[in-house]
Amino acid sequence: MIERATPMGQATPPTFETLLRTAEEMDTPDGFKAELIRGKIIVSRWPELRCSRPLLALRRELEYHAPDGLIAETAPFLFRFSAAERAYGPSLFVADESTFEGEGRHADGEALSLVGEFTSTSTKDADWNEKLDVYGQLVPVYLVIDMQDSEITCFWDPSPNGYRSRTTVSFGKPLQIPEPFGFSLDTTGF
């Protein structure tokens, strides 16, 4: 076998599948997650302690209002969006329960009915830009819980060009969550 040197500038970038497999196999410390953002593996913290109360309150409301066959969860699962070559581990999600009967360590983003992302100083840019673009083409409802600005924004009605509708309220004001959930979220405790 003959070895051939490859100049540093000409290395082939890893494929989406290679990055996804690497992210799955990473042994991230407790409280951290690995996601594929902008073609790179990004390790970031799960939401801070101050997010716990609103995160659990939101999960309880979504569990109560979710249609049959959907589950609301805060578990650290990775959802892949193959067409965009991205994979995210949302703070909170509502997905088809049959998704979790399969093999592997990541689920298809098409199973998602709702995603909630709690922003931090390190994730805010990705939550408001990168993830908004990807979720906006597929996920029916996207909630951005902006912990720095004390606001929650609901995006819905996805299209190939992104979400067509949005509403923002300050913490403490009610936020209408559209169908298939159809309820008014009390954000007083946020």
Rank of each mutant, 00 (worst) to 15 (best):
A5H: 06
M8L: 09
Q10Y: 05
T15W: 03
T15L: 09
E17H: 09
L19N: 05
R21Y: 12
R21A: 08
T22R: 04
P29W: 02
G31R: 14
G31D: 05
F32R: 13
K33T: 15
L36T: 08
I37S: 13
I37L: 15
K40E: 02
V43S: 03
W46D: 13
P47E: 01
L55P: 03
L56Y: 12
A57R: 14
R60W: 01
E63W: 01
E63T: 04
P67K: 03
P67F: 00
D68G: 12
L70H: 02
L70D: 03
A72H: 06
F79G: 12
F81L: 10
S82K: 13
A84S: 14
A84M: 06
E85P: 09
E85F: 00
L92G: 02
S98E: 11
T99V: 07
G104S: 03
D108H: 10
S113F: 03
S113C: 02
G116P: 01
F118I: 13
T119M: 10
T121R: 14
S122L: 14
S122N: 06
D125C: 10
D125Y: 07
W128K: 15
Y135I: 15
Q137L: 07
V139S: 02
I145V: 14
D146N: 11
I152Q: 02
I152W: 06
C154G: 04
W156Q: 01
P158A: 04
G162A: 12
Y163P: 13
R164D: 05
S165L: 05
T167P: 00
T167C: 03
V169A: 06
V169S: 08
V169E: 01
S170D: 14
F171A: 00
P174S: 05
L175G: 00
L175Y: 09
P180G: 11
F181K: 07
F181W: 00
G182T: 08
S184G: 07
L185W: 14
D186E: 15
T187P: 12
